[in-house]
Every structure is written in structure tokens, then in C-alpha cells.
């Protein structure tokens, strides 16, 4: 094991990846010697994420077909402008009509997923190729990671988490309102209700399994034994955290599917399958 020597001066010189030939290393010219299909996973990640970005941007800017009584698309909820069709949230202000109500609220889910520790891994590998895969050389001459702006902003992930938790409450409320029918009477359930419920559940799982959440509920403590309740919470969040990547993908798909379902209802392409 590592010895514990008295603290020395430390490494205080900022790193500068020169991109030049590293000194005294084994002379191996190839960027990598991997023989497996290491490129497949980053490629799939890039394609799926790009598809989602294109679809969600189109829907967010479309400013139409996001509400089909009693369902509202998760891209447009909470509905905070008077121009927004949904009625599940207090309408705070009237924005310019050419700005879609989705634009105002986009910053929270985008900020949460953009600074998420899992998605960071995914897009650093797939888009920034830093690195594209383990032991595969990256193309950049210089690398400073998240040690300086603009990537220092990734450290604000916990604030995005707070926002995402509030959004989850709103989206859960939306799903519960799916038990009303078109006229506002309770006692209805359709496929749309189920879609919104599953979406809300997956969003909760994704949010609660977050690494920042794990830290805040108990990870910051050094004496779990003095905080048994927080220790129990931490162990449960830790269990969820092991599946954080899975929840990240599933909730991404569920948001898109819930939106697409509402879109199809609102355009009259399909009608809601009614259970009762």
C-alpha cells in the first residue's frame, strides 16, 4: 500500500499537454492496438443523443401540439407563460408570442443532464473524443479537463439537481391529472396516463440516483454511525446510483415517448386508448 510520507510541496505546475512525443516511452506509433470494436459504443451514444437533441429541439421550438386534454408534453411542463395551453401550473408572465413556452423551462432539464456525471462521460467520449475509448489516443494536443472555465461550471450540478427535483414534482402532478377526463372529471385512465406515470417514475429514479444526490443525502458525512437515518438514505441512493446510467437512458427515452404520444394525440393522428 501507499506509504504516508509527510506532505511535500505537491505538484503545483499547471499541466500542458504539448502533444509532442512523450519522453522515454516505448516507441509504439499506432494510436491504439485494440482489436475489439471499441468505436461502436461511442458511435451509438453519439447517434442516439444527436437524434434526441434534434427531436427535442424541433418539438421545443414548434410551440404547437403539446397539449391534448388531459395530457401535457413533458417538454412544455411546467407551463409558466399565459400563452401556454396547459393548466397545471401558475402562469407567471406573458412572453413574446414567437418564443415557445418550452424555451423558458429548458434550462433545468438541459442543465441537469448536461452536468450529470454519467452524461459527461458519454459526451466527452462520444463527441469530444476525450478519450473515444479506453487506451485509444485522443486527438487533442492539449487537455485541461474540468480544471478551468468553461467546464468549471460542471461543478454546479447540484443546483441543477434542485431544479430537476421541482420539475419532477410538477411532472408527477401532470401524470396524476391524467386521471381526469377531457371534461375535468376524475375517474379516468388512458394509455396517456400510464405513459406520463412511467415517465415520472423514471425521472424520479434518474434524479434520485444522481451522484450529487448521493453526496447530499449522506455522502458528505464521515461518521455514518452518528446519522443512522442519513446512512440509510445514503445506502438506498447508493443502490440506485449503481444503475444511474440505465435510468439516464430510460428516462431520456420516456420523455421523448411521452412527448411523441401527446403530439400524436394533439394532431389527431391517434386517439387515446381508454382503460376506464
Amino acid at each position: 500500500m501507499t506509504t504516508t510520507a509527510p506532505r511535500g510541496t505537491g505538484a503545483v505546475t499547471p499541466g500542458r499537454g504539448s502533444g509532442g512525443p512523450p519522453p522515454r516511452r516505448a516507441a509504439i506509433a499506432a494510436r491504439h492496438l485494440r482489436t475489439d470494436r471499441w468505436w461502436l459504443q461511442p458511435l451509438i451514444t453519439a447517434v442516439v443523443l444527436l437524434c434526441f437533441v434534434v427531436y427535442s429541439s424541433f418539438r421545443a421550438f414548434q410551440n404547437a401540439y403539446y397539449f391534448a386534454e388531459p395530457y401535457i408534453s413533458p417538454f412544455y411542463s411546467p407551463c409558466i407563460t399565459t400563452g401556454c395551453e396547459g393548466d397545471t401550473f401558475p402562469e407567471f408572465f406573458t412572453g413574446p408570442s414567437f418564443i415557445s413556452p418550452a424555451i423558458y423551462i429548458l434550462v433545468i432539464p438541459l442543465g441537469f443532464r448536461g452536468t450529470c456525471y454519467y452524461y459527461r462521460k458519454a459526451y466527452y467520449r462520444s463527441f469530444w473524443l476525450s478519450p473515444p475509448a479506453c487506451a485509444v489516443g485522443e486527438p487533442h494536443r492539449r487537455y485541461t479537463g474540468e480544471s478551468r472555465p468553461p467546464l468549471l461550471i460542471q461543478n454546479l450540478h447540484r443546483y441543477a439537481l434542485y431544479g430537476a427535483l421541482i420539475f419532477n414534482v410538477v411532472l408527477t402532478y401532470d401524470a396524476i391529472l391524467g386521471f381526469r377526463d377531457e371534461t375535468g372529471e376524475w375517474g379516468h385512465m388512458g394509455l396517456g396516463t400510464l405513459v406520463l406515470l412511467v415517465n415520472a417514475a423514471l425521472l424520479w429514479l434518474y434524479t434520485l440516483s444522481c451522484h450529487s444526490c448521493r453526496h447530499l443525502v449522506g455522502g458528505r458525512l464521515n461518521h455514518f454511525s452518528r446519522h443512522p437515518l442519513r446512512y440509510r438514505l445514503w445506502t438506498r441512493v447508493s443502490r440506485l446510483n449503481a444503475s444511474h446510467a440505465r435510468f439516464a437512458w430510460l428516462s431520456l427515452f420516456s420523455v421523448a415517448i411521452a412527448d411523441a404520444y401527446v403530439f400524436l394525440l394533439a394532431t389527431g393522428t391517434i386517439s387515446d386508448l381508454r382503460f376506464f
Partner: peptide, 26 residues
């Protein structure tokens, strides 16, 4: 404490694998 100090993690870490100059700071 299970670490056996094989340094495979150090070897694969692109921060120093691809950028020798970062060894001073990382």
C-alpha cells in the same frame, strides 16, 4: 484499500497517457 497498485488505472487515464505534460499537475 483493496488497491494492489498495479497502476493500470494510471496507465489508461488519458489525462497523462495522451498528455505527458499533465503529469506535473495530475
Amino acid at each position: 484499500r483493496k488497491c494492489i497498485e498495479c497502476f493500470l488505472c494510471q496507465d489508461t487515464c488519458h489525462v497523462i497517457r495522451d498528455h505527458e505534460g499533465n503529469k506535473a499537475a495530475f
